[in-house]
Amino acid sequence: MKEFVLIFRSSSNGHAAPTPEQLQERVNWLASIAAQNKLADKGKALSAKLAKTVKPDGIITDGPYTEIKEFINGFVFVRTETIEEAIVFAQSNPILKAGGNVEVRAILTPGEKDQ
């Protein structure tokens, strides 16, 4: 088994005023992975409101998205045999319907060379 992180990106803030239906859909998605015993960590939701980007020379900008249109909404860790399996999870996430995307990245174990 290998661990992957699913990183959720979108250009709208899904945490601002989610409807009960949206929340239900998200939890259902997460629990469906948990039901397969493939959820490694339920991860975190990230704020787009209380957010700053820190740059060299004392420059601090508001929000994470001054230069890129999309920002990270949150992340979840899954445990699967292959990246393809993790991709299947990503494909069923409701964020895709809302125009967002999911980045799937393998977690490197300590000392593992990324090559």
Binding site: V27, L30, A31, A34, A35, N37
Partner: peptide, 9 residues
């Protein structure tokens, strides 16, 4: 049940 699964499989 969703919550329960997230807590413990």
């Amino acid at each position: 049940y969703n919550q329960l699964l997230l807590l413990e499989y």
